[in-house]
Each structure stands twice: as C-alpha cells, then as structure tokens.
Amino acid sequence: MSRVQMPDSSRLPKMETSEDGIYQVYSLCYARARSRHVHENFMIRDMHDGPMPMDFNLWILRNAHRTVLVDTGFSQRAANERRPLDFDPIEALARLDIDPDAIEDVIISHLHFDHAGNIDRFAKARFHVQDAEVAYATGRCMCDRTMRLGFDVEDVVTLVRHTYAERVCFHDGDATPLPGISLHVLPGHTAGIQAVRVMTPRGPVVLASDVSHFYANFLRRGPFAATLDATETLRSYEKLKEIAGAVERIIPGHDPKVRMLYPSYTFNGIELTALHEEPKQHDINTLARLESFA
C-alpha cells in the first residue's frame, strides 16, 4: 500500500503514489452539541443517563487525482445554542487549500440538514444521492411535520434545482461511482441513507454517517432516537459490519470518540482527524469488547 507523508502545519500532505483508488480520508469536525445526554441518542436507553455529546462532521477523501467530499455540513442558518458552529465548514475547506468551486464530486449520505446544508456553495460539483432518499424528501411524507424532522426545505429545494441543472447523479442501490469508492444503501435512519466505503493506505474504511451515529448504536444494537424504521436499522447494522469487516474499519457519523481514536493534525488552524492512519489499538479493543452487549 502507499505511504503518506507526515503533515506540516500549513497544508495537507500529498500521497507518495499516483495510484488511483487509494485515498487519504480526513474527518472535519466543524460543530459540537456539548449538552446532549444518553437518552437523546437512543430509541431505547439500556445504560445510565449522563452526558453524551455529539460531533458534526464532514469527510474529505483525497488522492493525486481528485478530492471528494462526503456530506457538506450545515451553515449558520441551521446553527443554534445547542449546536453552535465552531467555524464555517466551507470556509474551512478554503483554509485547507481545497477550493469548493473546484470539487467535482460530492457524496450526500442523506438529506438531513447537517449533512446536506451548503450544497449551494459548490460551483460545479455533481451530487451523488440515492433515488429513495430524494423520493422520500420530496414526497407525501413531507406533508407531516413529524416526518419532516431533520430535513431543511431550502436544502431539498436546492438539490432539486441542481437536478434540473443536470448536477445530481442518482443511484438506485449500491454503486461504485469512482475508483476505490463504493456506496452502500443502509436504510433505517432515513429511507435512502448510504454509507461510503473507501480504500485507504490501511485498507478499506467505511464512513457510516448516520447509519450509526455512535459506536454504541451499532455495537449495542440500539437505534438512534430519530429513526424512520427500526427494523431496517437493525438489519443495516449487520450489513455495516459485513461491509467493513471489523470495528476499526467503521467510522460512525457523530461520535467524539473518533477524534480520540485516530491521529489528529492541524493545518492552517483547522484540525483534521486522519482516518487513513491506524487507530490506537488499545482503545479499539475496548470498543470491540462492547460487542458483548449485542
């Protein structure tokens, strides 16, 4: 496998190989909900209540051929007292020397506000999304306030405008849109949520996004509180583990433990977590033992 240069303080490192299909993968945590508790993060709580903060992330996939984003975060419009922005995620990309207007492919895991905001801020990107997700977010269920929870009408309307501009790439099931990157439909949290499997120097990494918000969701088989279909979610947890092959290959969408488990580096004042590097084995083993709760 290819090796990665050690990063400096000013710019992201380059891959030492021009081989396509292998990527550096960074998570960018741009906001945090510090006051959340356990009971807010599980449909059924089987543990003591207490603080359980949530990170908000997007993911950067890079090699010598392209930069791909997985999700686009939310903007100040969607921020509030419980989830303030630490910084604007799109402005952070520019500070990382990643030009949003030069990005050609953005994968949207699902259309909730914290994953599909800011899609108006990319000049020429193609947005990869599942048929089922768009059908749900624009269909009759949106007539019900409860079912609309998590969706932002402006984000959905913007995606429709991009569709008319021929900038949306629809997928009907699992797909391989780019070398080394595959999409896997794992419904439950939403109707058409997709995880992203990407090949890295340490092997495949699966960006679960909200298929599993936290490690504890899939390890304890405890669906997140906001879940469209619990039965589908439990099936998706099993498929997630099959696709990944090991706990250390799975990156949940909102768990602050990710930042503790993997090396982090600061580039031009922006901290990134390097998911293409090996995790701290002791901490991963501790997580794996939680499978006894499954």
Rank of each mutant, 00 (worst) to 15 (best):
S212M: 09
V157H: 12
T17Q: 08
R126C: 00
H171D: 03
D174L: 08
N118R: 02
L178E: 01
S35P: 06
R259L: 13
R148P: 03
T67K: 11
S18K: 11
S236C: 10
L149P: 05
Y265D: 05
T227G: 02
A132F: 01
Y262G: 01
G150H: 12
A64Y: 06
Q281G: 04
Y237D: 07
R11S: 14
R126A: 00
G50D: 05
D99H: 09
A31C: 02
K257P: 02
G150E: 02
G139P: 10
S75W: 11
C29E: 14
H112E: 15
V211Y: 02
N63H: 07
L272M: 05
Q5I: 13
Q281C: 09
Y136G: 07
D120K: 12
L272R: 04
E166G: 14
L61V: 07
V206S: 07
A64K: 15
T176S: 14
A246F: 01
P252H: 02
E278F: 10
P201W: 04
G222K: 11
E19P: 06
E16Y: 03
V129C: 10
A64W: 06
V160Q: 14
V153L: 14
G50F: 04
M6P: 09
N41T: 14
Y237P: 09
H254K: 06
H48K: 13
I44D: 01
R249L: 02
